[in-house]
Amino acid sequence: MFILVNLKAYPCDPIEVATAARDVADASGVRIAISPQAADIARVAETGVETWAQHVSPNAHGSHTGSTLAEAVADNGAAGTLINHSENRLKLADIDGSVDAAERASLDTVVCANNPAQVGAAAALSPDAVAVEPPELIGGDVSVSTADPGIVEDAVAAAGAVDEAVDVFCGAGVSTGEDVAAAAELGASGVLLASGVAKADDPAAVLEDLVSEI
Results as ranks from 00 to 15, higher is better:
117 A>I: 12
126 S>F: 09
104 R>H: 14
70 A>P: 12
128 D>M: 02
100 D>F: 08
94 D>R: 02
156 V>A: 06
91 K>G: 02
96 D>Y: 13
115 N>P: 05
167 D>W: 10
115 N>S: 13
107 L>P: 02
67 S>M: 13
139 G>H: 09
80 G>P: 07
81 T>V: 13
151 I>L: 11
77 G>K: 08
162 V>G: 03
139 G>Y: 12
147 A>S: 10
94 D>M: 10
173 G>F: 12
166 V>M: 06
76 N>M: 11
115 N>F: 13
87 E>C: 09
127 P>W: 12
103 E>L: 09
79 A>F: 08
167 D>P: 02
82 L>W: 03
124 A>P: 02
72 A>I: 13
99 V>A: 00
90 L>H: 13
126 S>R: 14
152 V>E: 07
87 E>A: 09
113 A>L: 09
122 A>F: 01
168 V>Y: 08
82 L>C: 04
164 E>D: 15
145 S>E: 01
127 P>V: 08
171 G>P: 10
173 G>Y: 13
140 G>Q: 07
118 Q>C: 01
89 R>Y: 04
76 N>L: 14
168 V>Q: 07
141 D>C: 02
97 G>E: 11
151 I>K: 01
137 L>A: 03
114 N>V: 04
154 D>V: 00
70 A>G: 12
111 V>Y: 05
142 V>Q: 11
135 P>K: 06
179 D>H: 15
80 G>M: 11
78 A>T: 11
134 P>L: 06
128 D>H: 12
111 V>F: 13
125 L>D: 03
124 A>R: 07
84 N>S: 07
154 D>C: 00
100 D>G: 05
106 S>A: 13
100 D>W: 11
153 E>N: 00
134 P>G: 03
71 E>K: 08
113 A>E: 02
160 G>P: 03
116 P>G: 05
133 E>D: 08
104 R>I: 01
129 A>G: 04
129 A>K: 01
172 A>L: 14
178 E>V: 13
149 P>F: 07
92 L>S: 09
174 V>Q: 07
122 A>Y: 02
117 A>Q: 09
99 V>S: 00
76 N>E: 14
133 E>M: 11
99 V>G: 00
85 H>W: 07
146 T>M: 02
136 E>H: 14
170 C>D: 08
109 T>Q: 01
105 A>P: 04
126 S>K: 15
73 V>H: 09
77 G>M: 12
112 C>L: 12
158 A>W: 15
83 I>L: 09
151 I>H: 01
166 V>C: 07
115 N>M: 06
71 E>W: 14
121 A>Q: 13
85 H>I: 01
101 A>E: 00
139 G>N: 07
172 A>V: 06
71 E>L: 11
153 E>G: 00
106 S>E: 14
173 G>T: 05
104 R>G: 02
69 L>Y: 15
112 C>R: 00
103 E>N: 10
